[in-house]
Design a protein around this nucleic acid. Structure first.
Lengths: 132, 132
DNA sequence: TTGACATATGAACATATGTTCATATAATCA
DNA sequence: TGATTATATGAACATATGTTCATATGTCAA
């Protein structure tokens, strides 16, 4: 899998499109535009990342990567209120990143998608590579 | 690489630790606690995800996944002001997710880390799998 | 039933965040 | 030089977001 190297050879043409203020490479734009992700997908994808973009939720998922845990234990591991944890788990549940199993008055949470562990791992790699 | 299956066999013991309000499985917690990611790494990882958690920036990265682009073309592809784009590119640059190459008064941006394409791809997969 | 417990949730508050507008920098051209 | 172009950036504003506190729901024990 090598990087897509698009032609960057187009000269600075005097553009004539009516809507755009100005464009450097109209030909390349026309080629790329239809290949971009559609609005709904963009929104969904960024929503998932938004969920991962909070320390408390990353801690939660990191804790859950070691196996199923109840809310009270997650609160201890994450170091926050059970209320705060519960609010966050609700969001993660809605996005199907975690799943509940209820036993009596306990609620046991697990990761519902093992892509998540991969995402955490890859991002960690990015961060660690940057510590030059 | 299979999922780590931790023992969940501990009985509901009457806990005696002084700081925690209550714990369900103290033995498992003691085992897991030292294996959790440290605070600084959690923060860095969630910061990267936070950057990916915005539609405009996902659009930017998606556009850049098709090759190097100048700011004005990115503005057209993303459908926003060049000012807004520039603000976002600044953030992405600071996180070393994109890189600039300056030619005259133009600024050409590229992805600086190809993990990012993988992250986008995997998250897209998660989203698409959920459309049941 | 009564009380204690585990979890869930709504409202409110403080903080963070993305865009807009104005302006700055820096390069190209007349 | 002066005008125009491409990008960058600061301040301000409106919106979004995470936690806290109070309370609700449902479970178990006595």
């Amino acid at each position: 899998m090598s990087t897509a190297a698009d032609p960057l050879l187009a000269v600075h043409s005097t553009d004539a499109s009516p809507d755009a203020a100005h464009q450097h490479d109209p030909a390349a734009l026309a080629l790329i535009k239809p290949r971009l992700l559609d609005a709904a997908l963009i929104e969904s994808v960024s929503d998932v990342f938004k969920l991962l973009g909070d320390p408390t939720r990353v801690r939660l998922l990191d804790a859950l990567s070691h196996g199923e845990r109840c809310v009270c234990d997650l609160a201890v591991l994450v170091g926050t209120t059970e209320s705060a944890i519960s609010h966050q788990l609700r969001l993660l549940r809605a996005a199907r990143l975690v799943r509940v199993r209820r036993v009596g008055r306990m609620a046991y949470y697990t990761l519902d998608d093992h892509h998540v562990i991969g995402l955490l791992h890859d991002t960690r790699k990015h961060v660690e590579e940057g510590r030059s």
